[in-house]
Simulated scan of single mutants.
Amino acid sequence: MRKVSLEQKPRYISLPKHHDRVEIPRISPLHDSDTLTRDNWRNKETISHVNFSMSSDEMGENSVLNQCESPLMLRTGSMMPGITLDGEVFQLSKTEIFDAIIHILSCSALDNPNYLTIIKDSPNGTLQFILHFIEKKSCEQIYKERAVLLKCLYSSNMCSEKQKSNDVHMINLTGTLSTTWETCLDNEPSLYCAYECELCGSYITLLPVLTVDTNLILRKGFEALNEGLHFYHYLTKVKCQQEGCPEMCTVTAYPNFHICIYLDVRRNDRSHTKIQCKLQNFPKTLELKSLPGQYRLQGIVSESSDRTVAYCLRAEDHWELYDGYSMIVETFDSSGVINPCGAIYIRT
């Protein structure tokens, strides 16, 4: 969770539409997580203003789309040639986790009209990219737009290399599902935590992803995800997140319209390997403690030794495998064994 401070002249933000309006001073970060930098945050603040338009000359370069490929599949960045933006060449690598998130949320928007309406109203650059992806499918302009977006989000991860007498800007998205969600959906976290402090007043911190009780999951499996989820709607006697404040606060947690659950569950032995499971082991609905309504399972992000893929649960209740290396959407049996690193649920 980011540490935050109130601005000198507080502005106000609203919690997601499915909650009653609660006006709380807007916050700005003091410290990012150890995988993010202040430069990244500055770029994320302006990401909703990224211009995705491309010139006709740029659109004509680097043609890679195969007509046999699925129109709603993003090819992983390391399999793409460099993308030319404003006369400079950018090469993307390690985009698999970002692409998996895009695939799951795109399928969610296609299957759930309410979610589509919600993301249309969001200023988040990644969600706006999803709208363009749904509209334009997998095409040259979409790959350009992905490069524009990631150039802004990961500017601090960029380095230049000399290739065939040209400078190529390398953008590496190395990270976990948690850090990727935090970077790309910074203002659309899984949870808004509203603090009430006698000294500092009211403020909000953003929790990008939810976590689980790993010992419980190891004992009972992912079938117990509801029970093992670290979520409490209301807490008392929580230490204030403001730097140097000794007070204890009350905290009210408000889940967003989508929640991402980070599943880094490893065995308690020498191997320390992540546990495997079947897709059918995951509960298809979640009921968050003390809150009405349900969240429907939309997809699982899975990691193996050589790649990260997305399994999307479609409205017809079947699973689809999205692998940016194969570029063909495959139907996947729910009894198939996977290596989950995260689950994404959408409010119904």
Rank of each mutant, 00 (worst) to 15 (best):
I328E: 15
C341N: 10
P283G: 08
I275A: 06
L313S: 03
Q276E: 14
L263A: 10
L297Q: 05
I275P: 01
T273A: 12
S335N: 15
G324E: 06
D269Y: 07
C249E: 07
M327L: 13
C341H: 02
R314D: 11
N339P: 00
Y295L: 08
G244N: 11
G244D: 09
I275E: 06
G244H: 07
A315Y: 08
L279H: 04
Q298G: 02
L263Q: 09
C249H: 05
T273N: 13
G324V: 04
K284I: 13
W319C: 02
R266Q: 14
R314C: 12
D317A: 12
L321D: 07
T252R: 12
Q280G: 00
C312E: 07
T250C: 08
A315D: 14
N268I: 10
S271W: 01
K239C: 08
V301S: 06
D306M: 05
A315R: 12
D306I: 08
S290D: 15
E330L: 10
H318F: 10
L297F: 10
N281Q: 11
G324P: 05
K289S: 07
S335T: 15
D323W: 11
K289D: 06
F332S: 11
R307A: 07
Q276K: 14
R270P: 00
Y322G: 01
E316P: 00
C312H: 04
G324Y: 05
N281R: 01
P292R: 02
N281P: 00
G293R: 02
T331P: 00
S334Y: 03
I261Y: 11
S304N: 14
V329Y: 03
I300V: 10
C249K: 01
S334E: 15
Y311I: 00
T308M: 03
N256L: 09
S304D: 12
F282C: 10
H318R: 09
P340D: 14
T331C: 10
V251Y: 07
A315W: 04
R266T: 11
E247F: 02
